[in-house]
Amino acid sequence: MAEKVATGATLLWEPLPVELMNAVFVERGRVQEALDSDVAATAWLRAIAGRLGADAAIKVEQLDEDTVRPVAGDLRALRDALRRLAAEVTEDPRPPDTTPGLTRPEAIATLNASARAWTELVWPVDGRPAGVFRGSGTAAECALRLIAHQAVELFAGPDCARLRPCLAPNCALFFVKNHARREWCSPACGNRVRVARHYRRHQEAQQK
């Protein structure tokens, strides 16, 4: 189910790298930037913090504006790099909406520079063993590295072949096609496509 962040971004419960790609969206026909300030970047990270915690032990209260501010620019750069790589791998026909001059080598370099995380075994005395992501720095820096690390796994793994651009009218989002019949990022986009098709058929019928 889609969920709106305070900044306007839509969370689709996709893999976190895809959620970051989707921090660019279209509203009223115009491309909007969901990470355009330190406050917005903080709100976005806090919105996905619960999904970071299971892998990196990051708590939402650790992601305050002072902590996020130093990495906000890196978060936007990673988002742009992921969108550039996703556009290439999906043969996205939509025009680039961020950093149109960004090359694939530049995008790869940005991703790799951010993906400095590793997995450690954690085995509590009274619990089960588990792998936990680690990274040096603040909670915000660890969050950035975890998302980048997962992005490497996304592009190098089986989900890469299932990554799709949503080609509904006025949509800039990506999604992972996890069902054979899924064609759009959300039911709302599917409804827009059906409305557009109905309108087009109605117009064609009137012209005959």
Rank of each mutant, 00 (worst) to 15 (best):
M1Q: 15
A2L: 15
A2M: 15
V5M: 04
V5W: 09
A9G: 02
A9H: 02
A9P: 02
T10C: 10
L11G: 03
L11I: 03
L12M: 10
P17T: 01
P17I: 04
E19Q: 04
E19W: 00
L20H: 01
M21S: 02
M21D: 02
A23C: 07
A23W: 05
R30I: 13
E33Q: 13
A34H: 02
A34L: 06
D36N: 14
A41P: 00
T42I: 09
L45H: 06
R46N: 02
R46H: 03
R46A: 07
A47G: 00
I48M: 05
A49F: 05
A49Y: 05
G50I: 04
G50E: 06
R51E: 12
L52V: 07
L52S: 05
G53P: 06
G53I: 10
A54F: 08
A57W: 13
V60K: 08
V60I: 13
E65Y: 05
T67D: 12
V68F: 10
R69F: 11
R69N: 12
D74M: 11
L75Y: 04
A77C: 10
A77I: 06
L78G: 03
L78P: 03
R79Q: 09
D80K: 07
L82R: 06
L85W: 02
A86N: 03
V89H: 10
V89R: 13
T90V: 11
E91V: 12
D92G: 07
R94L: 09
P95S: 03
P96T: 03
D97W: 14
D97H: 15
T98K: 10
T98M: 09
T99V: 15
T99E: 14
P100F: 00
P100N: 04
L102R: 08
L102I: 00
E106S: 15
E106A: 13
A107M: 05
I108S: 09
T110E: 10
L111I: 02
N112E: 12
A113S: 11
S114V: 12
S114Q: 12
A117R: 05
W118G: 10
V122N: 12
P124S: 06
P124V: 09
V125Q: 15
V125C: 14
D126P: 10
D126W: 14
P129Q: 03
G131L: 14
V132W: 12
R134S: 02
G135Q: 08
T138N: 03
T138I: 08
A143Q: 00
L146E: 12
I147N: 06
A148N: 07
Q150H: 06
E153Y: 11
L154T: 00
G157T: 01
D159L: 08
C160A: 14
A161Q: 12
A161S: 11
R162S: 09
L163S: 02
R164F: 01
R164W: 03
P165R: 12
C166D: 01
L167R: 04
N170T: 09
N170A: 15
N170C: 09
C171R: 01
A172C: 07
L173V: 05
F175Q: 08
N178D: 15
N178R: 15
H179Y: 12
R182A: 06
E183Y: 13
W184C: 03
C185P: 04
C185H: 07
S186F: 02
S186W: 01
P187A: 04
C189M: 08
R192F: 01
R192S: 01
H198R: 12
Y199Q: 15
Y199E: 13
H202A: 15
E204Q: 14
Q207C: 00
